[in-house]
């Protein structure tokens, strides 16, 4: 696969322009048709605007840094992060939020996808309706639901009142606010999970179901023994994508509660923004590093575990 096969040794024009390529293996690859400088434009943009700040964050996280001065203080920011209850709460909320939304999107996404591939009436229309919120501005959705969830005048509580239920203060009750935002995030993101599952389901050959039916498997057994195992690649994608999204989420929280009431719905990303606004740049960066490590510690083992299971099958 390495060398173009159809190339006749002598006739291929080898332009001597491969000075970058030549550094690798001058004799073999002089003037490769795929020179390394092709990565330069993307590499430069990615290196300057993403990689360099990410690496720099490991230094800045160890400093007391504000508008006027910067001073190395070792791990004090991290110590403070784990000592301050409201900062800690951000960390706990992040984990809680990501696991709830990810689990709900996975389960609901699969169920809706199974429903929308079973040949029911208006299937295509339903797919579009479920998917559309994925494309809508998160801030728009956040502001919209903030009004719908208004404790006394919001449409949700008015509807509940009409059937005799006293609706709670969705966003004003500190023990409920995070879960209300999580519900909206599920509402917004379940369409993507459904879409991914529909793509996954379409790759399962009907033969499996036929064989299972012949063996006398019930609908329920077919779902657990055929659908769930065979749709695993889609499950991997949904779980990992929604976990990453949930751990990093900022805009929806900010539009709906700004971390409030108090600090009850703060997540790491909103803590990072608040500390930045307050001028604690070092502490904010430490929050960023914690988020970075948290995502790495969760996603990498999970991806490895999913892949291993896949090989085993």
């Amino acid at each position: 696969m390495n060398l173009p096969t159809g190339r006749q040794a002598g006739s291929a024009p080898s332009h001597g322009r491969g000075s970058t390529a030549a550094t690798q293996a001058p004799a073999k690859r002089r003037g490769s048709p795929y020179p390394y400088w092709f990565v330069l434009p993307a590499g430069a943009i990615f290196g300057i605007f993403f990689l360099a700040p990410t690496l720099a964050s490991f230094y800045f996280a160890l400093t007391a840094w504000d508008l006027f001065s910067i001073r190395f203080i070792g791990f004090d920011n991290f110590v403070q992060f784990f000592r301050e209850p409201f900062l800690m709460q951000g960390l706990v909320n992040t984990l809680l939020f990501a696991s709830i939304t990810s689990a709900a999107k996975t389960v609901l996404g699969l169920l809706i996808a199974v429903l929308l591939t079973s040949g029911i009436f208006a299937q295509g229309l339903l797919r579009s309706i479920v998917f559309f919120p994925v494309l809508v501005s998160t801030i728009g959705i956040g502001l919209m639901f903030a009004e719908l969830m208004h404790p006394t005048e919001g449409a949700i509580n008015l509807a509940l009142a009409a059937i005799g239920i006293d609706g709670p203060g969705w966003l004003t009750n500190p023990s409920l606010a995070l879960f209300s935002v999580a519900m909206v995030d599920i509402w917004r993101g379940v369409g993507l999970a459904t879409l991914i599952y529909i793509a996954g389901l379409s790759t399962i050959a009907q033969d499996y179901y036929e064989a299972a039916r012949i063996d006398g498997a019930t609908r329920w057994q077919q779902f657990w023994r055929v659908t769930v195992p065979l749709v695993r690649p889609a499950t991997t994608t949904v779980v990992i994508l929604s976990l990453i999204g949930g751990l990093r989420l900022f805009d929806l929280i900010w539009a709906m509660t700004r971390g409030g009431p108090g600090f009850s719905s703060d997540v790491l990303a909103s803590v990072i923004y608040k500390q930045y606004q307050a001028g604690f740049y070092g502490l904010s960066t430490a929050g960023n590093v914690i988020l970075f490590l948290l995502i790495g510690l969760i996603i990498l083992p999970l991806a490895w575990w999913f892949n291993r299971k896949e090989v085993e099958q």
Binding site: V39, A56, F60
Partner: peptide
């Protein structure tokens, strides 16, 4: 290595304050 950077770009949250500094 390139592939590793690609995945890193998909997963890692950008370091905002250092980016502003840069």
């Amino acid at each position: 290595i390139i592939y590793g950077f690609v995945l890193a770009g998909l997963i890692i949250p950008p370091a905002v304050v250092p980016t502003i500094w840069l």
